[in-house]
Amino acid sequence: MTLSSGRPAVVVDGVAKSFGRTRALDGVSLTAGAGVTGLLGPNGAGKTTLLRMLATVLAPDDGRLRLLGRDAADAGERLEIRRRLGYLPQEPGFHRGFTAFEFVDYVAILKEMTSRRERHDEVRRVLDEVGLSAVSGKKIRALSGGMRRRVALAQALLGDPELLVLDEPTVGLDPEQRLRFREIISRAAEGRCVILSTHQTEDVAALCGSIIVVHAGRTLFGGTPAELVATAQGRVWLDATRSPDARIAWRTGTGLHRNIGDVPPPQAELVRPSVEDAYLLLLGDESAAVAA
C-alpha cells in the first residue's frame, strides 16, 4: 500500500504531554510525507512520547494529530489509522515461547487478518522481507538480539502499512546488523512514510530525507540533512591542538584535532561538517540559550 500523493502522512500541530510534573512534550509541531523522517534528540527529549502518540498509543494533553488524513483523537478514525500503521516500540515485548512465525502470526490475528491462508502468506512475506525466513521456526528466546529486533520489525510491516513508526530500531545492534536494518528500512520506505527515532546520526545521514531535532519536549530544528549540516558551516575546523574556543574537540587518527565551536581561529583549516557536528552544535546552542 503506498501513500496518496501530495498530502502529508503526518501532521503534528502543537502537541503537548505531561506526566505528573514532567513536561515531556511542549508544543511540538511537524509534518512528514513519503520517505524517512529522522527524529533526533538526547535521552529524555520526548522522542518516545512523540512516537507513542504517532502510534496512537498515547493521547496528547493538548494539540492535534492528523495521521494518514485522519484525526487521531476520533475513536473511529483512530482504528482506521491503526489498521494502516506499523509500530516498532523501543522495547518490543515478546512471548518467548512463540517461534518467530507464531509471534508474527499472533500479531497478524490482532490486526484482524482473518483468512488463515492469506495471513500465513503475509507472515511469510514480512519474515522474508527482514531476512528471517530461515529461522522462522525457531523460538524467540533462542534468537539473537538483532534477530529479535528484526522479528519486531516484521510485525510492524504486516499488512503493508502506509505509515511506519520505528523507535530506535538499531539500538544495541552490531555494525553488520545496523547496516542490514538500514537496508530493510530504506526498502520499506519506498512509497511509505517512515518516522525513525534514533541516536545514530550516521543512520539519519544515510537514510533520512528530513530531520526533526527534539530537545526538552520542543522542536529545535526541522529540515533536510543538508539544511542541518549548513547550520554548522564554518564552525568545524582541524587544528594541531585543541582550540580554546571549541565547544567539543577530539584528537583524530591523523593527529589533528577536530574542533567544533563558534569562532574558528584565523589560521584554522575549515572542514565540511557532518550531521553529527551540526546536531551537537544545535544542542550546544540550545543549552547556552537556556543557561543565558
Partner: peptide
C-alpha cells in the same frame, strides 16, 4: 513483565 501488553495494544484493538 514481558511488555507484551504494549505489543498487543499497538496493533489495532483498543
Amino acid at each position: 513483565g514481558w511488555g507484551t501488553w504494549k505489543t498487543v495494544l499497538t496493533q489495532g484493538p483498543g
